Simulated scan of single mutants.
Amino acid sequence: MTAPAEPLKIAYSPCPNDTFVFEAWAHGRVPGAPALDVTFADIDITNGMAERGEFDVLKVSYAVLPYVLDEYALLPCGGALGRGCGPLVLTREAGTDLAGRTVAVPSERSTAYLLFRLWAADTVPGGVGEVVVMPFHEIMPAVRDGKVDAGLVIHEARFTYQNYGLHKLADMGEHWERTTGLPIPLGAILAKRSLGEATLELLAESARASVRAAWDDPERSRPYVMEHAQEMDPAVADQHIGLYVNEFTADLGADGYAAVRGLLTRAAAEGLVPPLGPDALAFP
């Protein structure tokens, strides 16, 4: 299988899990893999890139898949699914009833948002009130200051919300795992279908080989990871990698595909995303 002559344009985040996964490939240490032209962008940016058909390969939120799978194929590896890493709903007062209340969220094109709406449909009679999109770093201060009644937060906020005097009302990941038994679908790797079946297969092989190279020699990737982690403590970066780079990164497998289809099917039933076609997740 011959690699494309020109470097493929790829966009992924500067987060430790992505730089860990792609380090070997980005530095030409995956034999036979296509060369990469890397752009770093947060996932809300890459979601928009995918919707506009930009870039050959992208790391996106699984929540954006129903909008882009006509043009892009889901690679069966390289992404992020996890357990015990779900988003939280935070409030100023413990046990706040969210019926009719205002909730701040960082994005409406995210797994976190879909999980929140599915949780609310199951547990908030009458539903929540207004949903306000605001930058992630503004959400906890807004809840603390009473500008909104609750906030949906992700990632490191799981460990810092107490600093704002806030309370955890619910863990969206716990609800999802308890009701489905499946991992939480977080980030997906997509590649343009127009690259052709052979290239898509090569991309999947290259992503798997890059993950395995990172696992075989974790120290080799550390300079690249820390260069882009921006002031993150190395121990925190290691925890981040340990949480989000796992067996599903090497291969989605039956549980991974069931988690993705389960999330998007439930979300479509709630009118949150367009329905998936029966073969939408098929690879290549």
Rank of each mutant, 00 (worst) to 15 (best):
269 A>P: 03
21 V>M: 01
273 V>T: 12
220 R>V: 08
89 V>N: 03
80 A>P: 02
194 S>N: 04
57 V>R: 09
118 L>S: 10
268 A>I: 14
105 V>C: 08
187 G>V: 02
71 E>C: 01
6 E>H: 14
154 I>V: 15
150 A>F: 08
107 S>T: 13
126 G>S: 11
117 R>S: 04
39 T>W: 09
152 L>G: 11
65 L>W: 09
132 V>Q: 11
57 V>A: 06
258 A>E: 07
32 G>S: 07
265 T>K: 05
63 A>W: 14
207 A>H: 04
87 P>L: 12
182 L>N: 02
16 P>Q: 07
254 A>H: 05
213 A>C: 14
238 D>H: 00
88 L>S: 05
74 L>F: 10
115 L>K: 07
140 M>E: 13
114 L>N: 05
110 S>L: 10
275 P>F: 08
204 A>P: 02
269 A>S: 13
245 V>P: 01
125 P>V: 06
173 G>C: 09
165 G>L: 15
19 T>S: 09
8 L>E: 01
27 H>F: 13
75 L>E: 04
242 G>C: 07
155 H>V: 14
33 A>P: 08
124 V>T: 12
124 V>N: 07
237 A>F: 05
139 I>W: 10
248 F>Q: 02
129 G>S: 08
120 A>K: 12
140 M>G: 00
89 V>S: 04
188 A>V: 10
114 L>K: 09
182 L>S: 02
122 D>M: 06
50 A>G: 01
109 R>W: 07
198 A>V: 11
46 T>N: 11
252 L>C: 01
65 L>N: 04
281 L>E: 04
172 M>E: 04
26 A>Y: 00
247 E>Y: 05
141 P>S: 07
132 V>W: 03
252 L>I: 00
73 A>T: 01
33 A>R: 11
232 M>E: 09
186 L>A: 13
247 E>R: 15
250 A>S: 15
3 A>C: 02
217 D>V: 01
251 D>G: 05
147 K>V: 06
215 W>D: 00
186 L>M: 15
74 L>I: 07
233 D>T: 00
126 G>D: 09
57 V>K: 10
125 P>D: 09
73 A>S: 07
200 L>A: 04
76 P>S: 01
3 A>K: 05
154 I>H: 09
81 L>H: 07
175 H>I: 05
226 M>T: 03
214 A>H: 12
43 I>C: 09
7 P>L: 11
124 V>S: 08
90 L>E: 06
109 R>E: 05
209 A>H: 04
96 T>R: 14
282 A>E: 15
233 D>P: 01
42 D>R: 14
253 G>N: 07
114 L>M: 06
158 R>A: 11
149 D>Y: 12
238 D>G: 02
25 W>T: 05
144 R>N: 00
104 A>V: 15
20 F>K: 01
10 I>P: 01
121 A>D: 03
161 Y>M: 04
162 Q>I: 03
272 L>S: 10
54 E>C: 00
61 S>M: 09
64 V>L: 10
237 A>I: 04
86 G>F: 06
267 A>T: 08
266 R>W: 02
241 I>G: 08
113 Y>K: 10
127 G>T: 09
